Simulated assay, not measured.
Amino acid sequence: MDPRTVCATVLLAAGTAVLLFAVLAFRTLPRPYARLHALAPGTSLGAPLTLLALAVDAPPGRGAVKFLVIAALMVLGGTLTTLAVGRVTAEHEGRLSGDSGT
């Protein structure tokens, strides 16, 4: 196996492990706010590692760049998604009013 394949396999295994641990934590944690902590690593670390593995394994060119752009968007969007879900959960439980700016 060449070094690119080994690197892609290691990245894919790491991303898959993070995603599986996030799913396991999500299934076992009882409260919505605790579950948010389980989802954050999956969206901001697990999926980007998997996409990085795909970029390393893809032939050089536009395909690899597309995977890298999607991975960067996942890193940035994962945090924002977690914050948005937390806010909606707080509004649903009555801890935060829907029109509150704070």
Rank of each mutant, 00 (worst) to 15 (best):
D99K: 13
E93W: 09
T79R: 14
G86C: 05
A84D: 09
E93V: 08
C7E: 07
A40H: 12
A13D: 00
R62V: 14
R35S: 04
T43S: 09
I70L: 13
D57K: 02
T28H: 15
L73F: 13
T16C: 04
C7H: 07
G77S: 07
L12Q: 07
P59V: 11
L45S: 05
F21G: 13
G94D: 01
T5Q: 05
G63A: 12
M1H: 03
A25I: 09
I70K: 00
V23L: 15
G98V: 12
L49E: 06
L68N: 09
A58N: 01
A13S: 03
P48E: 07
G42E: 06
L45V: 03
V23R: 15
L29T: 02
L76K: 12
A25E: 13
L11S: 04
A71I: 11
I70N: 10
F67C: 08
A47D: 07
V6S: 03
A47P: 01
L36N: 03
T89I: 10
E91S: 08
M1N: 00
V6N: 02
A8V: 00
L76R: 12
R87W: 13
R62F: 15
L12S: 10
P3Q: 14
T5I: 07
G46M: 01
A38M: 01
L52N: 00
A64F: 09
V56G: 00
L20R: 13
L68K: 02
T89Q: 11
L68I: 07
